[in-house]
Design a binder for these strands. Structure first.
Lengths: 225, 225
DNA sequence: CGCTGAATTGACGGCTCTCAATGTCGGTGG
DNA sequence: CCACCGACATTGAGAGCCGTCAATTCAGCG
């Protein structure tokens, strides 16, 4: 999806490029917000801190993704953004949107964000651990695929902790589930390396309809079998 | 919060008013979207249907709330909206935003929606049933309060089923939790009627910091005590 | 080579879902 | 006026999933 005009992007790349190393904040919750960002390379974690000091991950952004549009009415950051690895960003002032009277364009950009949020809500409210992990991996795969990378093998840029904070699961549950998926032959995992072996089954577990399929192959009893 | 210019709203009220009776759809997922709405009176449930035919409630909208901004990039509805009671709406064409070059205005409007989504994600990911119900009631109370109604006593316009679909809980859990809150003296419930007796404790259960407070009064063991 | 933090694995308990029955309110028709 | 009915709500019992606690392994690094 082309969020912004290519020429516009090119213009800005020349002046608004930014390189951040792993673990650096792009912005923090509460700061003044006068710009949004597009990921050029690397990856970003968006999160907020609950009142009891715990972290809730809102999303991960890959190259091409837009983030930083979620601001309060006072133009303050509603969430924090931190790099998960060495990351190159492109900065766009909010004024940029007003200048070009891109009201409808803005709607298109925010649409993706809302779609993401809805998907997350849906996962958290209606899916169990297996479904959430499977959905998460399938989503990552399709996003890598749409960017020209392999949808079967990729490196996770986020920790198990981050995945858990994103999916509302304990780290141990994330780890256990991945192991079980591996034992089931759905995928191969080694630390941050993931290879999806049976994409159909993965999508089935995720609760996504797949064409041909024999019986329900829900990953169960594999550990004891 | 003044989402739209008062004069503009007045202009539109004259021509774009709409009355819907209980259970009528304002729009459905997938339909063409060329307008958003403001609730004048009554209440709206926003929801989407999962692949397995189940419903996921995304939010409830009270008088003054804006809804219908979540559209795909193709300007199609990303969710459905249905009235929970006899409801009066005001319709605003999307073109209305573009015409006035209200890019930044649009940002402010969508901000509220995103804030809402973030809160929902946070509840679903990090709070147990007690925390979700308490947060839900506290949110409703504060929204009624900001509209000039009582924050202590109000009528729920949604069913237990709807509340469960919103909070990712089974209907039985919603019912049980409300009963337990009542036994604990936090509130009084009878069907759709709710009266909050101890707002501080409610907020404490919701995971919201409250000034003075003795020991943790988490509602537990009340049923058996 | 030892240290540190991340990841894995196991045991256990509790919260919440599911299944099922009962209770309650509002509407309908005799 | 009252009996009946259906939708919604409440309540109970049992089981399963997942979080917590704890120990262990592993990779990276000085």
């Amino acid at each position: 999806m082309q969020l912004l005009n290519s020429q516009d992007v090119s213009d800005h790349l020349k002046q608004a490029k930014r390189i951040n190393r792993k673990g650096e904040h792009v912005f923090r919750e509460g700061e003044e917000a006068d710009a949004f960002y597009v990921v050029r390379s690397g990856s970003i974690k968006s999160y907020l801190v609950t009142e009891d000091g715990e972290e809730q991950v809102l999303g991960f952004y890959l190259p091409g993704d837009v983030f930083g549009l979620d601001t309060t009415e006072d133009q303050l950051r509603m969430s924090s953004a931190i790099t998960l690895e060495t990351t190159s960003l492109c900065r766009f002032p909010h004024a940029y949107l007003a200048d070009k009277a891109q009201g409808s364009n803005l709607l298109r950009i925010t649409a993706e964000q809302m779609q993401r949020d809805h998907n997350l809500v849906l996962m958290l409210a209606r899916k169990d651990a297996d479904g959430r992990i499977a959905s998460f991996l399938d989503d990552l795969a399709s996003r890598y695929w749409s960017r020209g990378y392999s949808a079967s093998a990729f490196l996770l840029s986020m920790s198990r902790q981050d995945i858990g904070c994103y999916l509302g699961l304990a780290v141990e549950t994330v780890s256990r589930t991945l192991t079980r998926f591996q034992e089931c032959g759905v995928l191969q995992v080694n630390r941050r390396e993931v290879e999806i072996l049976d994409h159909d089954t993965l999508r089935k577990i995720a609760g996504i309809r797949v064409e041909a399929s024999p019986g329900s192959c829900k990953v169960a009893g594999v550990g004891s079998a």
